[in-house]
Design a protein around this nucleic acid. Sequence first.
DNA 1: TAGTTTTAAGTTTTT
DNA 2: CTTAAAACTA
Length: 793
Amino acid sequence: MQSAGVPSYLEVLNPEQRRAVLHSGRPLLILAGAGSGKTRVITTKIAWLIREKGIDPRSILAVTFTNKAAREMAERARLIDERAGDAMLRTFHSFGAWFLRRNGRLAGLDSGFVIYDDDDAISLLSSILDDAPKAEVKKFAHGISRAKDYFLSPDSPDLVLIDGREKFRECYALYEEKMARIGNVDFGDLIKKPVEILRQEPEVARRFRERFSVIMVDEYQDANVAQFELLKALTGPDTYVCVVGDDDQSIYRFRGAEVKNILEFPDRFSDTDIIRLERNYRSTAPILKAASSVVNHNRGRLGKTLNAERGAGKIPVLVFLPNQDEEASFCAELIENSARGSDAAGGKGGKAGQARWSDWAVLYRTNAQSLGFETEFLRRGIPYRVVGSLKFYEREEIKDALALLAFLVNPRDEVAFRRVVNKPVRGVGAASVDRVIEQFEILDGDLIEAAKNAGLSAKAQAGIKAFFEVIENGRALLDQAGDGSGASGADNDDLAAADSVPALPASANKGGGSGKGKRRRAVKEPHELVSGEGLSVCVERLLRDSGIAEYHQAGDEVSGNQRLYNLQELVNAASLYPLGREGLLDFLEHIELDRSLAEPAADGAAERDADNAVTLITFHNTKGLEFRRVIMTGLEQGVFPRADKKDYELEEERRLFYVGATRAMDELYLSSCEMRRMYGRTEISAPSLFLREIDKSCLRIIGDVPYGFGAFDGAAVNHGGQIRQGGANALEEKAGWRRGERVFHDDHGYGAVMEVRDSDDGPVVRVRFETGEELRFYSDFQGSAFEKIGQDY
DNA sequence: TAGTTTTAAGTTTTT
DNA sequence: CTTAAAACTA
């Protein structure tokens, strides 16, 4: 291999990576295992195309799945070549929104549309399905969302694959009709509509194919059918297509991701070249082996062998614990022992081998599990940061504020209207609102007109007038700002601007808490909203005039919420956007598309050094991240994997396990609890199936190995753990339960006692239910949920 | 009809 | 156990 003339930024690549970067011509599929440097390949490739191939940066489109990935990619590409900043790096959805602002008109969509989130979609649906229970509405909403993921319209024959009921089809059609009248879009539309436009308008398709000569897709295994169609629609004969993915890391099937997209890519794009990146630079060998041995149990996979370039390292540790409280304190202690003092040391000057708080991540399956860790870490003063659980934009007061803003830009927004027209109470009750909506559906105008013709009572009329005045004032404020940003930008389909995606300020997330209430907050209770610059003037004015601010402030005083404070944060966030219609649209779009941001580290100690904190995070959210030391918690049947489900669902859980384990660079810990409180009940759970599947040569076990856990019963794998053996029969009296006895359980129905055993904590009763599932419980602890029905089986 | 109390239900994972 | 929906009262 010749090294003469190879630019230095290519020298750091291994041969496969370099081959991927230098590849050109035919479509390319890069199968990149975990930790194999795929981001480096993409960013380097962007730089190389610009530098060596003379490609105009603006004709490069790189799509990712998350905003975080998009930002990181842009940053890293710019480090190699400044000009990469002009390339378009976006998420699929953000690209779709950008497309529709310019070309949506061709699908009857005004450029001033607002993006509906799932909640808004549900609100819309429940106005269609008038008296359906909420759960039912949710099911339909979910179905519609899936249908759009699979690029299915109400008249598609394949719609039955999502939901066979005719009512579903009707409901979907009505939903689309209503959405069209309102003039907004949901998440699915951001992908589906662009494809439809590109297919129906050859001229638009031609322009886009001309504009983008290179298209790259990251995390391709997570793309759904509609996204694949979008990729195809954007691709002409001369477009260079390069996708990167790892079938073992496909964890979003539940929301339409199709592994088939990656498996069948070579069939759909002819003459595809495939390059495999199988050198892992992140984890040590035992960690990688443990992770691989689990995912190897999956059948539907391409299969690959990752090689650990870092070589040998610490063996992963599996610890069995009695319950979740012990699990939390075990994690806390483990972390404390290694990192205590690292904050004071400021990251440097610590002893060799001294870990920083930020080296650690605690992983769990569901957000609810973070609570126990938060409580324990707070108690011990361990700085931590919770990723992803924050639902700032789902808070009632924030949704109210956003509805107000949405109605400002789109006076046909029925969902927003419903939400805020009578908040605070203006005497406009449900009956009046329905009448307005009814009129709105007859007239082809907006809700303001409809209200005039709805024949309302004097009281309602006065109330609604007051509401519209607030809206009018807000709109006047926007219009008078003059809008230097060019309101026409939406009308022409100027493809030149590659407008970057600014992140919302982190401050927008402060004070969120996670609905857990106990979080400390250094902020004083605010007594009024204060506006700053730009758009915040309008937001503040609107919140004040509408009475929303006052309404929530009153609530704060009663129940000690921080709603006014949260509204203030929203006002602050708005100050980064220019005052005007365009600025407002931009603000709303960013909020809808990028709402999952990390919460600032909790705990006083961390504020000095905000980056040095333990990460608490769900398995799903870890994708694309890495940590020196990882603890995977809650490895129990029913928690992870979540429940005994179908094969393919189990395979997805297994991939999730793989994703989590491969985040670890140096040390990996796995914890499994014997008892766990769930729904207020304490139940005994069996160790996760996945623990059994780990290659035993790369596991050290600590704690009491639960009885009956076959794989670990043999002494050969028992390093320091003790296996509990129990007698059998004389226990029955002590336990108060005997074999064969019939049982009824509120949640699980009828069953029979299969076995009574002894343990350190008293007799254990094993029950098998008619459903086939089994439960165990301590007789002197937990018998209350189990009711004797006094007969033998 | 608004605001209260009582009862039921439910917890993945996310753009 | 926590939250949302239904039921009820003033």
